[in-house]
Simulated scan of single mutants.
Amino acid sequence: MVFLTTQRLVLRNVAPEDADTMYDYRNNELCARYQRGQVRDREGIAALVERRRSDVLGLEQPALLAVALRDTGEMIGEIVVMPQDGAISLGYTFSYRHHRRGYAYEALSALLELLHNRFPEQEFICFTEAENLPSRALLRKLGYQDLGYAPKIQSQIFGKWLTPQSEAELRQATDPAR
């Protein structure tokens, strides 16, 4: 299923032919160094693709989306949409072969617009490693606010479309005195 199309990209369900691409970038140091808990072996990736190939965008469960070039269909990255307790969190990995071309911004900005239009009551939260400067810059460019570093989860927290109460709670989680 195609979820959306941009000028250069298609966001769609993952497919069995994506497994080799995912294996390549998930095992490349540039992509893997900031990822936690990603499956990296061939068999695990193939099983993941099989389990997630019919995901739908909704608030009931996470969805794994392939980001592919519109002209060729080549997968260049993935985005996971994780709804939970009134918030949507996004995780993303883009192939090192396609860094610094604006694809992540293009895909995520279009997806954020789609999700916010469908689920306007949801807050959006992203977590990234403090050392992952490109991801932090991308989130700021996407309109996320840097809420600080949360030592308990070892992540920098970013929020968008937050209620004042949620923002205060997240900022409290980043307070080093706690």
Score class of each variant (00 low, 15 high):
A32H: 05
H98Q: 12
V2Q: 10
L139D: 02
F127C: 13
V80I: 15
I88E: 04
L114I: 12
A150Y: 03
Q145G: 09
V14S: 06
Y96R: 14
Y23A: 15
Y149T: 00
D71N: 13
L11K: 02
T5N: 01
V39G: 09
P120M: 07
Y23L: 15
L57R: 07
Y34Q: 03
D24F: 10
T93I: 15
R97C: 00
S155D: 05
E43N: 15
L64D: 01
I76M: 06
V49Q: 09
Y34P: 01
L64A: 14
V56G: 13
F158T: 01
R178E: 12
L57F: 11
V2R: 12
L142F: 14
R52Y: 03
L90E: 00
L65K: 07
N117M: 15
H116W: 15
D20T: 10
Q7F: 07
R140T: 13
Y144S: 03
I76P: 08
F3S: 03
R97F: 00
L170N: 04
Q172G: 12
R26C: 07
L112T: 04
A87G: 08
N13D: 11
M75H: 10
V81A: 11
G73P: 04
L4Y: 10
L9R: 07
S155A: 13
V2K: 04
I153G: 04
E129L: 11
T5C: 11
M22I: 13
E167R: 01
